[in-house]
């Protein structure tokens, strides 16, 4: 088996996948949180008692960063062959890199848009505290696609890595 693919070893491809997943998810989350936190800050200036209902809305765009982190950890620890990174062929590392892309892109985009949705929901909670439940559902709908991308990334990992492990007799 080729040790490299496109000039990079399997380990390098896999770690690159881990890094882009973390960058995409983390960047999307941090931008999303910034949007909603800005609005929440404004609401809390005049209504400090709304901190409780505001907190889940501010936190919810942070999940994409966590999904990026989970992906990176999976690549770093679970995907590592028992015989060491050197055993991972270049093409397999490249496939792991591709498997990381859903979390990277969907996490980035959904994190930003979830922040915007949560910012709108924060305005709704500012006006009517009793609408908290409904307000939380709206950004949670955006979350669905981040969760689906994480599921696809994890499934892809195992589909990709299983034949390799089998070939190694694991």
């Amino acid at each position: 088996m080729e040790a490299t693919f496109g000039g990079l070893s399997g380990m390098h491809w896999a770690l690159l996948g881990a890094v882009v997943a973390m960058i995409g998810g983390g960047a999307g989350s941090s931008m999303g949180i910034t949007y909603v936190a800005n609005v929440a800050g404004g609401v809390l200036t005049d209504m400090p008692e709304r901190f409780g209902p505001m907190l889940p809305l501010v936190v919810i765009p942070g999940t994409q960063g966590i999904y990026g982190f989970i992906t990176a950890v999976l690549v770093a620890f679970v995907m590592k062959p028992s015989s060491g990174w050197e055993a991972l062929p270049g093409w397999l590392g490249f496939l792991i890199f591709l498997a990381c892309l859903p979390v990277c892109f969907v996490g980035f985009v959904s994190g930003m848009f979830q922040g915007l949705t949560a910012a709108g929901a924060a305005g709704m909670v500012a006006k009517r505290r009793e609408e908290m439940g409904r307000a939380l559902v709206l950004p949670a709908l955006v979350e669905t696609y981040a969760v689906l991308s994480l599921i696809i990334t994890i499934l892809s990992f195992f589909v990709i890595i299983r034949p390799f492990y089998t070939s190694l007799g694991i």
Binding site: V36, N38, V39, G42, T45, D46, R50, G123
Partner: peptide
């Protein structure tokens, strides 16, 4: 964002 938050609280 901050200004929008403040006006939502005052609307």
């Amino acid at each position: 964002g901050y200004a929008v938050g403040r006006i939502r609280a005052n609307e």
